[in-house]
Nucleic acid binder design. Structure first.
Lengths: 262, 262
DNA sequence: CTTGATCCTCACGTAACGTGAGGATCTAAC
DNA sequence: GTTAGATCCTCACGTTACGTGAGGATCAAG
């Protein structure tokens, strides 16, 4: 690929077997600065210098450089490359295994990040004009969920949200937006939990919850746990989240629902 | 998880609403140094200072810090966090998308590295006592292959190697170790390509090649291309690789094989 | 008043070079 | 012999997100 300029590369017959930094850089695709750096850290010290101080690399140096590039292609950091080339093959397999584990950890962590970001982009697409504050609230909710749900449960939830239409998602949000203030109101004016209006609200509430959990007991348990531990924090930081008091209240309506058969 | 010491945390009623760095650090799980750093770069400048210069963080500061932590959880670098919090939501989706792409590139590159390392570990397990030089040769061969084979072909080859027993792999290596010098010998002494000994060698050669390619035309073509482009380099740097001349020679025997039905 | 905890501000170190600054040397052409 | 352009040299700062002291001031409690 690299077109070399043969007129410039040719040298006197005596010094044919040595190269200057620039030549070596062109041949190997590295930069001059990188070669200087390798010299600085003692990874590749040129065997010779001209009287004026210009670096001269011999064929042996070039071979070492090829080895360095090979090892760098495997992603080893420069100091490991140096150790490996200095004959520390005692631990060769362990070094590789460690390196692989480091990489896999990074892959896992980056994969988690990508999942979060996708999920975030998803949320943003549904609701336009988000403020940075709302953004952070979404993120907080997401990370809380990661703490309380198992990865499989998160997968299930994500799949369910993906298969739902945007329309339905907005509808659900609107419905919560109606339900929560309504229940709040009844709680404040002291409506009995088993009053017919509350039973009706409880039925709608239950339907929404079941649509979210999909009838999965593990998921609904996780929701409860999350709610118990973080509920008050969520309430203070997000609007449109039921307070623990409301939760109690609707729970009583639930029990009333169960007592009075539909 | 962190046990806070309430006796220490309690402050006089007047200053209840402010925290010093250490307290904030304990509450948020960050280090004091990190908070200093955020102050230095202007990401989170505490609203107040005591007369003696100690930082005092207000509730607003704590909220901003929570936002910072949210965005950091998504893997955004600090300067992006700063930009996002300064209300540059113009590009919110683009920022997220860019960030996601960066991460996915990294994942892809690390995944490639892990594959190489696994393959390398594989090779090392089959042959013990490798020198660093041999190691680099293996790496060079591997990266050459990545240049000439498509990812699917590499998958196929890897799968085939994995399903092969160690025993068979060693056997194949031993056989190449016999065949190559033998053919080299006949080439040097000038045996005719259609001589019976050469036909026998060609048959064995062909069987080995077919075992490697699995009859896949794409793979055998890729092998040929790689060989034409890198053959001489490979020969100079690795022992036990057929020279281009040998390749020509065995090709003639192939044609003789085809002419003379088995 | 002392003591231990906490606070402050520098300031260097990290990985692998990029990017000049300022100056010496080389090579070919005139 | 000189000169221009390419190439070489050695500093030395910048990059990320802090860690890790150094050396000293301040705070809270006994």
């Amino acid at each position: 690929m690299v077109m070399s300029a043969p007129t410039r590369e040719r040298r006197s017959a005596v010094t044919t077997e040595s190269w200057k930094v620039g030549q070596l850089a062109r041949r190997t695709g590295l930069t001059v600065r990188a070669l200087h750096h390798y010299d600085d850290i003692g990874l590749l010290v040129p065997s010779g210098r001209t009287p004026s101080g210009h670096r001269l690399y011999t064929r042996a140096d070039v071979e070492r450089l090829q080895q360095i590039q090979s090892l760098r292609l495997m992603g080893f950091p420069l100091d490991e490359v140096k150790r490996l080339l200095s004959g520390a093959r005692l631990s060769l397999r362990r070094v590789i295994e460690l390196h692989r584990m480091r990489l896999e950890e990074q892959i896992a962590s980056h994969t988690r990040l990508v999942e979060r970001l996708s999920s975030l982009a998803d949320h943003l697409e549904r609701s336009d004009g988000v403020t940075t504050d709302a953004l952070c609230q979404i993120i907080e909710a997401m990370t809380s969920m990661e703490k309380y749900f198992t990865p499989e449960q998160l997968d299930t939830l994500r799949a369910r949200r993906e298969e739902a239409t945007d329309h339905r998602v907005r509808e659900v949000e609107r419905e919560w937006g109606e339900l929560i203030p309504a229940v709040q109101h009844h709680l404040e004016v002291g409506t009995a939990p088993d009053a017919p209006e509350m039973l009706a609200l409880a039925r709608r509430w239950k339907a929404l919850v079941e649509e979210f959990t999909g009838g999965d007991v593990g998921i609904s348990k996780a929701v409860m746990t999350m709610y118990r531990n973080e509920g008050d924090v969520l309430c203070r930081r997000m609007s449109n989240v039921p307070t623990p008091a409301m939760f109690d209240y609707i729970g009583q309506s639930y029990r009333a629902l169960a007592a009075v058969p539909a």
